[in-house]
């Protein structure tokens, strides 16, 4: 199975790199002609971003954008990261700055970047205005599904002068998803297997991922039926509902700190859950590294993990 997939990937990679030269910039609104050394982009907030050349020193406040920069080979341009950016491991060597509500503009300016990448969820308009006034280009990403994740990757590729590498990453992701989706369609039972995405464990109140989340989108590609597909986004749900909806699989993203029962053990030991099919069959997956919650390149890897878990490697 893995070998066949690898062969597929190699083929697709070859095809996409060959095609990359031709480009299809016409359908991508973020690409602007870059005849001179300057780069002009429209970011995901619709703001125009002008750079004198490919960004050499980037501060990225959002974890997913840091992952994208490393994936497209622009890791060495990262001179600062938001405090919660933790992947890949080497990024931890990069100086951290406060992000979100506590964003410290002075900290960022002190790193002397020529580009700051920030997410629109955590950062405010005031913060980006302040940075622009300080003469620093600001690029906002706002990915809430797989398609806009591709857009963010392409945008960062252009900003750092690595459009082809970015395209390769996107194409690889597309291929993986298409491949997994096709295989899942062939193998999924009818009716579709049901799955429950657990965000926060019972002790703290159950939170589940509903419609419009990355987990739900990936699950749909894999022919999985989210038991909380009737809810929008993340939601605190009633334990009784999980027991009644009888999921075949459980994916938990609860963290494990090396003490007490692991997230899987704690689900297996919950009172009254023994009659839930996923618990009875020990069909619980624990993803602890945000594989399916960050709009970055690892979504594809997360999808692979989920596929292997449900349909077998």
């Amino acid at each position: 199975m893995r070998q066949r997939l690898g062969a597929w990937l190699a083929l697709v990679l070859f095809a996409t790199t060959a095609l990359a030269g031709c480009g299809d910039s016409s359908k991508d609104p973020t690409t602007a002609p870059s005849d001179s050394a300057g780069i002009t982009l429209t970011d995901m907030m619709g703001q125009t971003v002008t750079l004198s050349g490919p960004a050499q020193k980037v501060v990225s406040l959002t974890a997913s954008d840091v992952e994208i920069l490393y994936a497209i080979g622009a890791g060495d341009t990262v001179v600062g990261r938001g405090e919660f950016c933790d992947y890949p491991a080497e990024v931890l060597q990069v100086p951290a700055v406060q992000s979100g509500n506590d964003t410290n503009i002075e900290q960022i300016i002190a790193l002397d970047p020529d580009l700051v990448v920030m997410g629109t969820m955590a950062q405010s308009q005031e913060q980006s205005d302040q940075l622009r006034q300080a003469g620093i280009a600001v690029l906002a990403t706002d990915a809430d599904d797989i398609a806009s994740t591709y857009q963010a990757i392409e945008l960062l590729g252009q900003a750092t002068g690595r459009p082809s590498q970015a395209q390769a990453v996107v194409d690889q992701m597309r291929t993986t998803f298409a491949d997994l989706s096709a295989q899942a369609s062939a193998r999924a039972s009818q009716p579709k297997p049901t799955i429950y995405y657990e965000i926060s464990p019972l002790e703290y109140g159950l939170w589940a991922a509903g419609r419009g989340t990355f987990m739900d989108e990936v699950g749909q590609l894999l022919q999985l039926d989210n038991i909380f597909g009737d809810l929008e986004g993340w939601a605190e749900v009633s334990q009784e509902q999980v027991l009644e909806r009888q999921p075949d699989y459980i994916l938990t993203v609860a963290m494990y700190f090396g003490e007490g029962p692991t997230p899987i053990e704690s689900i297996l030991s919950r009172q009254g859950w023994e009659q839930v099919p996923a618990v009875a069959d020990d069909a619980i997956l624990n993803l602890q590294q945000d594989e399916l919650s960050r709009p970055g390149p690892r979504l594809a890897a997360g999808a692979q993990l989920l596929y292997d878990f449900v349909y077998g490697a």
Partner: peptide, 13 residues
């Protein structure tokens, strides 16, 4: 068993 788990194991405690 589903009703038992909802009533006895979950709701009652």
């Amino acid at each position: 068993r589903m009703i038992a788990s909802i009533i006895v194991s979950t709701r009652l405690p």
